[in-house]
Design a protein around this nucleic acid. Structure first.
Lengths: 212, 212, 212, 212
DNA sequence: CATGAATGAGGATTCATTCAT
DNA sequence: TATGAATGAATCCTCATTCAT
């Protein structure tokens, strides 16, 4: 976002560091990443790193600046009339966003365990997702569906599911006895969990709907 | 499980270390825990620690020995005739187990990001949960419900949800704009997500069921 | 003053570090002193240093704790009836105190150029000396001598003289074309400067006194 | 003194560095001054610095070339018949010279603590002052005053006083409980110390003089 | 067994100086 | 001559682990 480098050369180096940091974070995690690892991947000296960033946290913040929490919120906002399609779009967006920003996600998440400031950032990420889910729930209720669960808790659970499922399959190599889901299967399954819970028919209604 | 200490005094010390480690892991996380922190809480010297454990990993392993993956697997196996009640029982068991073993969960999870061996253990924990969920799905199908989603992916998503929801609320202080859910609300919500997804009526059936 | 070490062994080490720091500060100055230099003179590993002090500043502060600014103030307070003897006693005390605490003086003075907190400490040292001189001036006026110079400025100048003369001869090896003064010569000269200025006869008085 | 730069542009740059160095030395001291600070104030690049000077020491030496030790010596030589006026003139010259060359004084003095070569320069500065004082003492004796103190020690003490008083008030912000002296008060006080000590009446002489 | 001091490997960071453009 | 990015030597500091008592 804001660049320290004045010259093209410096900009190339800065970009090299950003790219290297993403690669190293994705490959060995944020915790394991040493400045010298990043510098090596960037093809520069460790000292050069400090011309651009004060420390490892700062380069993570620089990466995060390119990705606001808005992104996650937007990703979870349905934009279509059909509720299932809306949810599927939201899940797909979240899934793809997570993949695109995997190094950043790994970084914030790991730092959230150590540093209160990053814990707040991680919570902000979740909060953005939660706002998106809540918006969906409210719009469902506006069309007559009553959602008979605590909205906040439900949203928190859904965001937990999305977040952890992405983490498991993208950062941790997945679950051992489960076939790697392709994108569509993943999106189908997560969407179904969301949709079926929110748009759930009340027992008394013969048509299977949930209208009030 | 099995103790190294020969004398009663040694056994007391070992127990003190185990208890201290749990407390410190829960309070500041596994990463932030220094051997000297644990020793201090245990009221022993840092040097004494090494009479019982080679390093921090080993005391985590000792803690984990008291808690086999069976526990998680068992917790997620329904034991009752009524499916919803079965699921609620499973979720309650998971929720309470996670709380009971919070230090261990924090430890394995954080170590899973750094150490392949613990990554495997973490996966084993998840795998146990997944087996439990899959058992439930199979039993649902045995009673005539068709679950029209990829079973493995579904189980993985459900375990992700449970795991991350527990992590968020027990280890990370929860989501900022969501009221702290009491145990019943948490269990209700997680159970509903699970139940409604698995026992979902197919569109064509007026009775709202999903029988084949 | 307050010791970190619990055991005799630790106390010996702590003392070794304090002694080593004094030696190194005196020999190569505070700025040039590396932690590893101090550790080497103390016969310990550099890492051991940090069991006792956070950094170089802290060991300087530990040294300073044994020496309060009171010392300098006391040193400059005359305690005898005869004014010249009082001044000579004060100068002698300052001169000997400075020598005794040479490493500390070097440390505070050098640090005063870099760190505001130590600049304040250095000023406090001077202020203590100034209070002592001012007390002497007041007592001279009580016995009827009028001191027709700005008291504060005079005290500041006298303390400057004492401080810098000590610095020059004890820390910097003296002035090249001046014979090394023995203690008595130094004390005589500094005392004369002080005494003759304060107890200076006014021109009009034939007896050479300065009484009002 | 002699310039390295060949072109007018180069001469302007060199002047900019010299001016910037003076400013930075005066503001944050020589030790704290980084090459990059100087370059920034000069509005040039750090790399450019090395076209003119090998390192920080060298620019200090360049500054000192404009100011020979002669200056201090001259400043302390009385040029008038009246002894008190001579001394006042000398003190005033020293005081003003110190202010004028404050950055240089700070530089030499700080470097004198680290580098033997600059310690020698600092001593040379003092020696020049001492020669000036000694010349005054000799001329006093030529007019019949006996100075009954060790001349070298006395001169060393007077130069110490001048040096340290200037340092205290110009470089260190003064003494906390003393009112800032204006130039005349400072000069009066320092001169009085000098004059009263050198032209001190011997006890036995009723006229208050000190003639032999 | 317990103690707590001692060790040293590992990594972060600074900044004077060099160098390609 | 000017630029500013790149370098790497030097030092600080942490903390898991060892060891003498």
């Amino acid at each position: 976002m804001d660049t320290v480098a004045a010259t093209p050369k410096g900009q190339r180096t800065e970009a090299a560091f950003l790219g290297a940091a993403r690669q190293v974070f994705a490959e060995k995690g944020y915790f394991n990443a040493k400045i010298s690892d990043i510098a090596e991947v960037a093809g520069r000296s460790p000292g050069s790193f400090y011309n651009y960033y004060e420390n490892k946290e700062e380069i993570l913040e620089a990466l995060l600046d390119q990705f606001s929490t808005e992104v996650l919120e937007a990703s979870l906002k349905s934009r279509t009339g059909d509720p299932l399609e809306g949810i599927r779009g939201a899940v797909r967006a979240y899934w793809l966003t997570y993949r695109k920003y995997l190094p950043e996600m790994i970084g914030v998440f790991q730092m959230s365990m150590t540093d209160p400031e990053f814990a707040a950032r991680w919570q902000a990420n979740r909060a953005a997702g939660i706002r998106g889910v809540l918006a969906g729930i409210r719009s469902a209720e506006r069309t007559g569906h009553r959602v008979d669960l605590d909205h906040g808790t439900l949203a928190s659970a859904l965001v937990s599911m999305l977040e952890s499922f992405c983490w498991t399959w993208m950062a941790m190599g997945g679950d051992p006895d489960v076939d790697v889901p392709d994108d569509e299967t993943a999106i189908d399954t997560l969407s179904a969990l969301w949709y079926r819970t929110v748009f759930h028919p009340v027992p008394g209604c013969a048509c299977g709907c949930n209208r009030t």
